[in-house]
Simulated scan of single mutants.
Amino acid sequence: MDRGSRLGEYVLEEKVGEGGFCEVWRGRHVMLGNVVALKVATDEGMADFLRREGVLQHSLEHSNIVRVLGGDVESHPPYLVTEFMEGGSLRRLLKEQGRLQPEEAIRVVADVAAALQFAHQKGVVHRDVKPENILFDANGTAKVADFGFWRFFEARRTHRSLALSFLSTEDVVGGTLEYMSPEQRRGEPPAPSDDVYSLGVVLFECLTGRLPAPGDRVSDFVDVGEEVDAAFAGAYVRRQKRFQDIPSFINALRAKTWRSSSKPRRHRIFADDEKGGTLPKDVRQAMKTAMRFLRSVGGSVDESDLRSFQRRGDTLLLLFSERLGLVEFLYSVSVKNGEVVEYRRRRRRR
């Protein structure tokens, strides 16, 4: 296909990607003028594959799944029409930045997790989760695309899935080796934990800019908390020891990174001579310095999280508490001459 070619009601404006059997174009509706993405098969023998992908993805209406708007698999060439994702792919972002900051990486993984959990609730496993299939809209929201290798992971057929059952076939194999679980590589029956494995690899790559090898920990390459290591370790392992579903995996990350919108009330416990008064200027300045430092290492604290402080000569020792559900993190930060000179973190269950 060439720029300016017409497919149905759309004119091709720019090729924005390509894969093994298709090209992806930005297109525009001839009459309405709206911009879309067109996935155009370069091999007309893949028409059934496109139909299978389009019908399934169209049925999965979720804010983190790329919407399929239409298509024509009997056209020459066959094509699908989807919403156009202005932000490009996670792969492009990683090429530009090398790796993501922890907060951004977790946000992306959380968006993808929401899409996968929704699909799993419908009995569908994606089976090809990778940065190329994670796209961003104009607002930076991550959405999952390319359900071409999907499979049902259980025998049940509800009234919602009956219409799709003829599309689910044992003959559809594939995926991307670096992101495939060992069980998927061996051709074992699909399970939600296959997507958990792939999402764990994506998490590792987002944070480190590289693919994992057996025995790797995220903290071997970047400064992250033990909870991130635990979440990755629970995903990047054989199925018997792996998180069996998306909520288990994402909850492991929440323990470190996410905060409930209903923030619990906390009490400040100041030194005796400071009780009942406002914070002295030097303490307030030290608190801001400590807060900036804690946020840079993955904490999520504000002024209400300060529990106590002590003066030790020209050093101020500040204690912050971050409570996440049943877990509380205590941060001890020493500030001297406007700089953090010592930092400790302790975790305890309440």
Rank of each mutant, 00 (worst) to 15 (best):
Y79G: 02
E13M: 10
D229S: 07
A191W: 02
L294T: 02
R265H: 14
R127F: 02
S332R: 13
G87Y: 06
K256V: 13
K39I: 04
L80F: 07
L116V: 08
A233C: 08
R284V: 12
S260A: 13
S308Y: 07
V172H: 07
V301R: 01
R160Y: 15
R26N: 08
L164C: 09
F166Q: 15
H120A: 06
G200L: 01
V333R: 02
F152G: 03
F166C: 12
A286W: 03
I246E: 08
V66K: 00
L294K: 02
R266A: 09
K263Y: 13
S89W: 08
R210E: 14
N251C: 10
V81T: 10
N337G: 12
K281E: 15
A41V: 08
L167A: 09
R307L: 08
E226G: 14
E44Y: 12
S59Y: 00
G200I: 02
G325T: 05
A113Y: 01
V283N: 06
F270W: 10
R349N: 15
G187R: 03
Y179M: 00
A235F: 03
F249Y: 09
D48Q: 10
G4W: 07
R295D: 11
R284E: 15
R238N: 14
G234L: 02
L162G: 13
S165F: 11
V224Q: 04
D194W: 03
P212M: 06
G174P: 06
V172R: 04
L279S: 05
P189L: 02
V228P: 00
G20T: 11
L116Y: 00
L167P: 08
A155M: 13
G276H: 10
C22V: 08
R284L: 14
R348V: 13
E18P: 05
K15D: 07
A110Q: 09
F166E: 15
R157M: 14
R346M: 14
R268K: 12
V173P: 10
V66T: 05
R239Y: 06
G338S: 01
S193V: 05
R284F: 14
R127H: 04
T42Q: 09
P102A: 01
E83F: 05
T141H: 08
H76N: 13
R323H: 10
R312T: 11
M1Y: 07
D223R: 14
E342M: 03
A142W: 01
I106F: 12
A41C: 11
A255F: 07
V73P: 00
L60G: 00
E342H: 12
D171A: 12
F118R: 04
S161P: 09
D223H: 14
A37K: 01
L306M: 11
G27H: 00
V125R: 00
E86H: 10
G71I: 00
D272Q: 15
D72T: 01
H159F: 14
N139I: 08
L326S: 15
L177N: 06
S198C: 03
M180C: 01
E322F: 02
G17Q: 01
N34S: 11
V68N: 03
K336S: 13
E205Y: 04
A213D: 11
Y179L: 02
F152C: 04
A233L: 11
R160W: 13
Y236A: 05
Q57Y: 07
R52T: 05
L164H: 10
E339N: 09
D220C: 07
G4D: 10
E96L: 11
V333C: 04
Q121A: 13
E74R: 11
Q57L: 02
V73I: 12
D272F: 15
R312L: 11
D72F: 03
V237L: 09
L207K: 02
